[in-house]
Simulated scan of single mutants.
Amino acid sequence: MGHTIQDKKKLIARVRRIKGQAEALEKALDEEGDCVAVLQQIAAIRGAVNGLMTQVLEGHIREHLGAEGVSAQERLEDVEHVVSALRSYLK
């Protein structure tokens, strides 16, 4: 996955922000914080994870499905992997 290596710093920064958001959510729940603030934090985490998924998926599609010199069989297999990952993600 060359595209994840190229964007490694950006991806790790996103993951760290998500981690911070999850820790803030845990703290709000532990301290019995305001329900609206908890809901907003959950929504923020979901948005952050969606952004991470979008970035990795876009890189994967461009790098693997859109790459020159990929055989039809390899492309078909990769499409199946992407579809499987999307199905799992969207459950």
Score class of each variant (00 low, 15 high):
I18N: 08
I18G: 04
I18Y: 02
R16K: 13
K10F: 13
A85I: 10
K10W: 06
L52H: 00
I12M: 10
E58V: 00
G59V: 02
A48H: 03
L76M: 12
N50G: 09
R14V: 00
G20Y: 05
K19S: 11
V79I: 13
N50E: 12
E80K: 08
Q55H: 11
C35E: 12
A67T: 06
D30P: 01
A85F: 07
R87E: 15
I42F: 01
E68R: 02
V49T: 02
R75T: 12
I45D: 11
K19Q: 15
Q73L: 15
M1W: 04
Y89T: 10
I45C: 12
E58Y: 03
E26G: 14
C35D: 14
L29N: 01
R16T: 12
S84C: 10
E80F: 10
I42P: 04
G20V: 11
N50F: 02
E80M: 02
L86F: 05
E77D: 13
E31T: 10
R46F: 01
M53N: 09
A67G: 09
T54S: 09
L57W: 03
E63H: 07
L65M: 14
L25E: 05
V36S: 12
E32W: 07
V38H: 00
Q55F: 06
V15Q: 01
G51V: 05
G47H: 00
N50C: 01
G66D: 14
Q73P: 02
E68A: 12
L52D: 07
V82T: 09
G20P: 05
R17Y: 00
Q55K: 04
H60S: 06
S84W: 03
L39K: 00
V15D: 09
I18D: 08
A44D: 13
R87I: 01
V82W: 09
L65H: 00
D7K: 09
D30I: 00
H60R: 01
A72E: 15
K10M: 12
V82F: 09
A13Y: 04
E58H: 06
A37E: 06
Q40Y: 05
R75Q: 10
E23H: 14
M1R: 06
L11R: 03
V70R: 15
L76E: 15
A44N: 07
L76H: 14
K27G: 06
A48S: 11
V49Q: 07
Q55P: 02
K9I: 10
A85H: 01
G51C: 03
G51K: 00
L86R: 00
R62L: 13
A24E: 07
L86W: 00
V83A: 14
D30Q: 12
R46H: 12
A37T: 02
S88W: 03
G2V: 05
G59L: 01
I18A: 08
S84H: 13
Q6P: 00
Q73G: 10
I45F: 07
I5G: 07
E32A: 15
G47P: 07
K10R: 12
G20A: 11
V38L: 08
K27T: 15
I61F: 13
A85S: 14
Q6W: 04
S84D: 11
E32K: 11
L52S: 02
T4I: 13
G2S: 10
E23P: 11
R16Q: 14
I5E: 15
G69N: 05
V49R: 04
K91A: 11
D30M: 08
I45E: 05
Q6Y: 06
G2D: 13
S71R: 04
G2N: 15
C35A: 14
K9L: 13
H60P: 07
V82L: 13
S71I: 01
L52R: 01
I42M: 03
K8V: 02
